[in-house]
Design a protein around this nucleic acid. Structure first.
Lengths: 91, 91
DNA sequence: TTGATAGGCAAGCGTTCGCTTGCATATATT
DNA sequence: AATATATGCAAGCGAACGCTTGCCTATCAA
């Protein structure tokens, strides 16, 4: 899961899914190229989604021939369960 | 900083510094070998500490010929500032 | 059935990473 | 001054990573 986060393209995919859940592979591809100027191919994004899915950061659901992707923040909780994170309360 | 977290040895170093701050390079080396069974050399740990320091996860302070290392959680806050993390309140 | 759409699998390539090895620098200690 | 201690710098190597390319499977539409 730490490996999954260690790539800016994958982090952008998480950004995109966090802002709009349930997107297909092609939707994510077009959004990344238009909004973030990414020139990645479909296969590259597909592999990134595979890594994110293996890490549990993305869950999927088949809808006919399309595959919907959802952001799942649960694995991230392991980070601040492992290390003490100073939370500054708003003054 | 995401890259710095993407290595179990570096995560163990953060564990160690989080539990006991202000350790030197040699102290960290011995603790890693004894407590975690790591067989890494001093140079390997030194490079890991360099990565952690570059990421801001570790701050240092020279004390004569030794260099003390401190855990700094501040960069980690960027993670849950970037993505919404479901915090389950204890029941 | 035919064609188009959405996605999957796998080999190959260049780059980066983690580690080792060897030498160098700086600060104590005697 | 001479020695030991604590760390730094850099080249080299094998492995893992990200990406491309090419082909294959499954689902929907006409």
């Amino acid at each position: 899961m730490f490996r999954a986060l260690d790539d800016e393209t994958r982090r952008l995919i998480l950004d995109e899914l966090a802002s709009r859940d349930g997107q297909s592979l092609f939707e994510i591809c077009t959004v990344l190229t238009t909004r973030h100027g990414l020139g990645s191919t479909r296969q590259a994004i597909s592999q990134h989604l595979g890594v994110l899915e293996d890490a549990g950061l993305v869950t999927t659901e088949r809808r006919g021939r399309t595959k919907l992707h959802y952001f799942n923040s649960e694995p991230l909780t392991a980070i601040f369960q492992r290390w003490p994170i100073a939370r500054e309360d708003a003054p």
